[in-house]
């Protein structure tokens, strides 16, 4: 492959909303086996960054390559799990149909799903342990269960990269641990990028961390410096235990 192990590459990417910069000169390389956590405050541009990789937003400057293609073409190798709150919980659709939606880009137009599509949907629901709920209406599930279904929907397209936007929001803690165990299992098959505003949740499981607040601080490792964190959160930061940052605290006088 001409890009070696790099599957996604952003070079000097700028995004503006109504003239206000949301991303400033972001450089980022994602490699084939990365489990990358991107942390940063709300409004720091995390979702925007994911949307740039997915080709949903066009950067005002800079270059984005996804699996060697422009995002619109490369995104077929990318599975996306959007932020939890962004769907109509009353929508009349079963878990099974939600998961099959992930195959829509691969099935032929004007045809119904093939047996192979249905097999993939079955296996994906099995992977996230939600097969028993396949006939349930999506809104009737708990937050963690819904998150699993949306992960299954991303998995049916057999992605090489999984983008997770705040996957732990609205998920209670025992379920969070289970979700991280699921990601551990999935990372053998694909690269994972997990975006969160909660550092403590991310830090234990991921193997690389980047900080994002309009600008991206990333050294291709799990090490982040206090300076990076303070620049990201724009407040003094206290780091507790194991050399891994666990908590962002306001300075107490």
């Amino acid at each position: 492959m001409q890009h070696g192990w790099t599957i996604v590459k952003l070079e000097d990417v700028w995004v503006h909303f109504d003239g206000v910069p949301v991303l400033e000169g972001v450089d980022l390389s994602i490699n084939q086996q990365d489990f990358l956590g991107i942390i940063g405050p709300n409004g720091g541009g995390k979702t925007t960054l994911l949307k740039v990789i997915l080709g949903l937003l066009k950067p005002s400057r800079g270059k984005v390559t996804v699996f060697g293609h422009p995002p619109e073409k490369g995104r077929k190798f990318v599975g996306y799990v959007p932020q939890y709150s962004l769907f109509d919980h009353e929508f009349p659709v079963s878990v099974w149909d939600v998961v099959l939606m992930g195959r829509l880009g691969h099935k032929k137009p004007f045809r119904d799903y093939s047996e192979a599509d249905k097999k993939l949907a079955h296996d994906s629901l099995d992977t996230v342990e939600m097969l028993d709920f396949k006939d349930t209406q999506i809104g009737k599930l708990s937050g963690g269960q819904q998150q699993r279904v949306f992960i299954a929907r991303a998995l049916v397209a057999e992605p090489k990269l999984l983008l997770l936007d705040e996957p732990m929001a609205s998920v209670d803690s025992p379920m969070q641990t289970e979700l991280y165990e699921l990601f551990e299992k999935l990372r053998e098959r694909m690269a994972i990028v997990l975006v969160s505003h909660d550092i403590s949740a991310v830090s234990i499981y991921v193997d690389k961390i980047a900080c994002l607040n309009r600008r991206l601080f990333y050294h291709n490792t799990k090490e982040i410096t206090v300076e990076d964190l303070e620049a990201t959160y724009q407040c003094p930061v206290e780091i507790i235990a194991h050399g891994v940052p666990h908590r962002v605290l306001k300075e107490h006088k």
């Binding site: 997915l54 080709g55 949903l56 995104r75 077929k76 990318v78 996306y80 959007p82 962004l86 769907f87 109509d88 929508f91 659709v93 149909d97 939600v98 099959l100 939606m101 992930g102 829509l104 880009g105 099935k107 137009p109 004007f110 119904d112 799903y113 397209a157």
Partner: peptide
């Protein structure tokens, strides 16, 4: 096209990312 219409009704942005 009922599958496609269902997908854009449920989540149009997601439908874009899967290539619809």
């Amino acid at each position: 096209l009922h599958r496609e219409f269902q997908a854009i009704s449920f989540d149009e942005e997601y439908a874009t990312t899967i290539g619809l």
